[in-house]
Design a protein around this nucleic acid. Structure first.
Length: 281
DNA sequence: AAAGTAACCTGCCCGC
DNA sequence: TGCGGGCAGGTTACTT
């Protein structure tokens, strides 16, 4: 499910809502999702502590506490958070899937946050002060950071033997782009996903670079992409509206919105890849 | 070393 | 109406 725009939308909402709340306790229904530390310690440490902020790295959400511990969450394919204030009932959308509620956070003001995940591909770690997680240390550029400038992007392309879609989706190179946005970035750039990165001209690279930034920003502004199954919704159960602006992703049996040519589906690293072979060279 | 495949899960859609 | 196969916003581990 969630790629950078969806994760960032959730992060921003979480930051607004839970920062400065006191976490009274957590309840774990599905211990397998907790990767670190052992479950007893996990529950023991997440008691009576203050939330000081919520950040993001790639597709990971990081909740910070006054103890200097931090909770890292990867939503996998279907992880979602549901927030309810003290007197609210769960919203309709979450009610349908209550059996997939796995983790409950109870706050001092009687509000609560639930981690829900149909497929259970999500993963959660609680790190103590100074501890780090290799998979986060190994992430590549944060694509919306200023530090990720065109020269650095172009150098990535020159140095790689991958095709451009593989590169865009490689979290160790650029963090946060998944299958939806890789498809959209390449269609909007009119570049075929199988092009070897070293074969791209500076002009072509520039188009891709600008589309990475533009499409991710646009998608955040529209609060992400919700597909029909609603495995991505925000904390209140609301859908994102970037889906309405998708050009190719998920458009099976559809035609190119630019030239009318039927879209083709190819598989790259076993992921469906939608391409207009007339427009994308 | 790169590239392919299976594994982790549940649900939905399609064709027979 | 039911059953089996394939597919889904992700990532890792294990093969070739």
């Amino acid at each position: 499910m969630p790629e950078l725009p969806e994760v960032e939308t959730i992060r921003r909402d979480l930051e607004k809502i839970i920062t400065k709340k006191i976490l009274i306790k957590v309840q774990v229904k599905t211990p397998i999702l907790i990767k670190k530390p052992k479950i007893d310690e996990f529950i023991y440490k997440l008691k009576n502590i203050l939330i000081t902020g919520v950040t993001r790295r790639g597709k990971y959400i990081i909740i910070h506490f006054d103890t200097m511990d931090s909770l890292i969450i990867h939503l996998g394919m279907s992880g979602r958070f549901e927030y309810t204030s003290s007197n609210e009932l769960p919203s309709k959308i979450f009610k349908k899937q209550q059996k997939h509620n796995h983790l409950f956070f109870f706050f001092k003001d009687r509000s609560r946050l639930i981690y829900n995940d149909v497929r259970k591909f999500g993963k959660i770690w609680l790190l103590e002060k100074g501890e780090n997680l290799p998979r986060i240390e190994n992430l590549g550029f944060e694509p919306l950071d200023e530090e990720f400038n065109f020269d650095k992007f172009y150098k990535l392309l020159v140095d790689s033997t991958k095709n451009i879609k593989q590169l865009l989706m490689d979290q160790k190179i650029i963090a946060g782009i998944g299958n939806i946005y890789a498809n959209e970035i390449l269609f909007n750039s009119r570049i075929h996903p199988l092009r070897k990165t070293y074969s791209l001209s500076e002009d072509e690279a520039k188009k891709i670079y600008l589309n990475i930034k533009r499409i991710l920003v646009d998608a955040i502004n529209l609060r992400g992409t919700t597909m029909v199954d609603e495995s991505y919704v925000d904390l209140q159960g609301n859908t994102g509206s970037y889906g309405g602006t998708l050009n190719v992703y998920g458009k099976k049996n559809d035609t190119c919105p630019v030239c009318g040519n039927p879209l083709k589906i190819i598989r790259i690293e076993n992921r469906s890849t939608f391409v207009c072979s007339k427009c994308q060279k």
